[in-house]
Amino acid sequence: MAEPSLAPQNHGVNRPVHHTLASAANLANLLPTGTTLAFQTFAPSFSNNGLCHLSNRYLTAILTFVCAAFCFLSSFTDTFVDGTGKLHYGIATFRGLYIFNFDERDRDRYEKKELKRFRLRFVDFVHAFVSLMLFLIFALSDSNVQSCYFSQVGSDWNSLFMNLPMGAGALSTFLFTIFPTTRRGIGYADITAHRV
């Protein structure tokens, strides 16, 4: 008697599921997880664990601004692998992709029309603003930031600060899944899709 096969059977049904799971796996790159982690690392010391003096308020505001700017701008970054296997990093502009790590030899190899397909689109701005708003919600919900800036608010505001990140995270995940982007930003796990 033959042993039953444990290998998964592929009858074409798993294709939509695979696409959905691949999109969900890349949400960590779309959501501002790295920026939020950096903010949560520095916020306790910058805010003096919520016991803010004037200098701590300025430091926390500067940290929030820098992380928010990085979160916004990282939505416009992209990467591609050229024909030689070299990985290039750049930022999207209205004319195409501005490459950070081009050598002069590389610059002659690519025509502008090849990099024009990476130009800015409307969905890039949607992703940038959603990521920015999501980061600001998480930053303002941090207990040290709340103690520093919102120490006098009542229980209604505390309840809002507690529940807002979960709702905003679910909404942004839904929006990123419904309106996917083709950007493969710096640090993106799946860079093989862009080849020039």
Rank of each mutant, 00 (worst) to 15 (best):
M1V: 06
P4W: 08
S5M: 14
A7W: 03
P8S: 14
V13A: 01
N14S: 12
P16I: 01
A22P: 00
A24N: 09
A25C: 06
N26F: 09
L31H: 04
G34T: 14
G34L: 13
T35L: 05
F39N: 09
A43Y: 01
S45W: 12
L51S: 13
H53E: 08
L54H: 12
Y58I: 12
L63R: 05
C67S: 12
F72R: 00
L73E: 00
L73H: 00
S75A: 14
T77G: 00
T79C: 09
T79L: 04
D82T: 03
T84M: 02
L87A: 02
H88S: 07
Y89Q: 07
A92H: 05
A92S: 11
I99A: 05
N101H: 02
F102Y: 11
R107W: 06
D108S: 13
Y110V: 09
K112M: 05
E114K: 07
R119P: 00
R121Q: 09
V123G: 04
V126Y: 05
F129D: 00
V130H: 00
S131A: 14
S131M: 10
F135V: 03
S141Q: 04
S141A: 10
S141N: 12
Q146E: 08
C148T: 12
C148R: 09
S151F: 13
Q152D: 15
N158I: 06
N163D: 13
L164D: 03
L164H: 00
P165F: 05
P165S: 11
M166A: 15
G167S: 02
G169T: 14
L171A: 15
L171M: 13
F174E: 02
F174M: 06
L175F: 08
F176I: 02
F176H: 04
T177N: 04
P180F: 04
T182R: 12
R183L: 05
D190F: 10
I191P: 00
T192S: 12
A193Y: 15
